[in-house]
Amino acid sequence: MSKAHVYNRDHINTDEIIPARYLNTDDEQELAEHCMEGLDKDFVSKVAEGDVIVAGEDFGCGSSREHAVWAIRGAKVGTVIAKSFARIFYRNAINCGFYLIESADGPGQINDGDELEIDYKTGLIKDKTTGIDITFNPLPDFALGIINDGGLLEHIKKKM
């Protein structure tokens, strides 16, 4: 079971997810300690393994820093559910083998603290707290191919 951490905002950007002052390292655990710090400095103390970030449009906009994905992954977040994602962030996540959920009407129905159960294969979020079921489009096959291989580099290694 995963707990939802809802940030009811659009354009949550990479400077908020991992401020640039921490970009002098690429150590995932070190980055994780500052995950979401620009937006919510208590996030790291609240989040438990497998929890979910829920947000509005254009999540991850701004810089190309993959550090944003690593910080989230390093903080043991299970996935991010957003109305839409910024392009580079979305691509980086797939390349890292990190599954993101895009859902136009999902975020509006999930409350902070709700317990969620997610079926990535069929594209179903069960909100156990409210009893609401939310469907989403599973990632396209080519992206799943990359994720199932464990990320882009493992994926291309197969072809090399």
């Binding site: 810089s63 190309s64 980086n92 580099l153």
Partner: peptide
């Protein structure tokens, strides 16, 4: 770097990528 889109001023296709894409591009 996300501002790699700058080079499009020269009628080129230019776009920013993250580190994993960068690694893949460097190798292949």
């Amino acid at each position: 770097d996300s501002h790699t889109c700058t080079y499009g001023a020269f009628a080129a296709f230019s776009t920013g990528i993250g580190s994993t894409d960068l690694a893949a591009a460097i190798a292949t």
